[in-house]
Write a protein that binds this DNA or RNA. Structure first.
Length: 247
DNA sequence: GCGACAG
DNA sequence: ATCTTGTCGC
């Protein structure tokens, strides 16, 4: 059996008690987007991307790509046990080069989770960094209209909110508190990180970039390098970090 | 028992 | 997550 769900639940319940819901106690200059893609035809080979984006001009200042085997299957409610190991590896590498504390933006839920510890909260607590969850589907909680917004309510508290976009608001993104951050912080950052030209039909910028980078890298070095050269205008790298497959 | 179910 | 097929629009 790949994963002991009872033990995993216990871990989530214990760690969820360490989640802090409070305002940011500093002004992050950088946000790190985290996402994982899988090699086509082989969902056991994952590719994690950690991308550091400067908040004032939205330039990519650094990134880290890690490719490795992923053995834990995806089970709703336990995504972190599948994706956190690789995501964490990419993140740690990036943080060692980043001389500042960023806010993390993770593809997945924060406290809008059955045990209030989605992958965004999990990685936030483990690193003790502020974190935000960004998901494309609701996993847990009720949607209630408050203050002109669709809020995600979990156990009577506001866990996050919904941002709808695209033609006829067809697409929705579920933004939630991860760790060491408040709803007000979420609104401040999230509203500024959606790309205006896409009308919220694509994820917030750091997630969008991490998503594209991890997918291109998962499809091979050539694709990734081509994507980089096609998008040099997004970068502001003082060093070249083409470290794919270095694992 | 039935429906729901991040990536 | 990934694949597939087809459609619309720049």
């Amino acid at each position: 059996m790949p994963l002991d769900l009872l033990k995993a639940s216990r871990i989530q319940e214990i760690l969820s008690k360490k989640v802090q819901i409070k305002r940011l106690d500093y002004r992050p200059k950088t946000v790190v987007g985290l996402d994982i893609s899988y090699k086509p035809g082989q969902d056991t080979i994952g590719c994690a991307a950690a991308v550091a984006i400067r908040l004032d001009d939205l330039k990519i200042i650094d990134y880290s790509i890690v490719i490795d085997e992923v053995t834990i299957p995806y089970i709703p409610g336990f995504l972190a046990f599948r994706e956190m190991p690789l995501m964490f590896k990419a993140l740690i590498r990036l943080l060692k080069r980043l001389n500042e504390k960023p806010v993390l933006m993770v593809n997945g839920h924060g406290i809008s989770h059955p045990r209030k510890l989605g992958i965004a909260s999990h990685i936030g607590v483990v690193t003790d960094l502020p974190s935000i969850g960004v998901a494309g589907k609701l996993l847990y909680g009720d949607i209630v209209r408050l203050k002109g917004r669709d809020m995600i309510i979990v156990e009577g508290i506001i866990a996050g909110f919904v941002v709808s976009g695209g033609r006829d608001r067809k697409k929705s993104y579920y933004i939630s508190i991860g760790h060491k951050i408040s709803i007000e912080d979420l609104e401040y950052y999230i509203d500024r990180l959606f790309e205006p030209e896409f009308h919220c039909a694509k994820p917030p910028y750091p997630i969008h970039i991490a998503d594209v980078m991890s997918r291109e890298a998962a499809r091979g070095r050539d694709n990734f390098i081509k994507w980089i050269s096609r998008n040099k205008h997004l970068f502001d790298l003082y060093t070249e970090h083409l470290e794919i497959f270095s694992n």
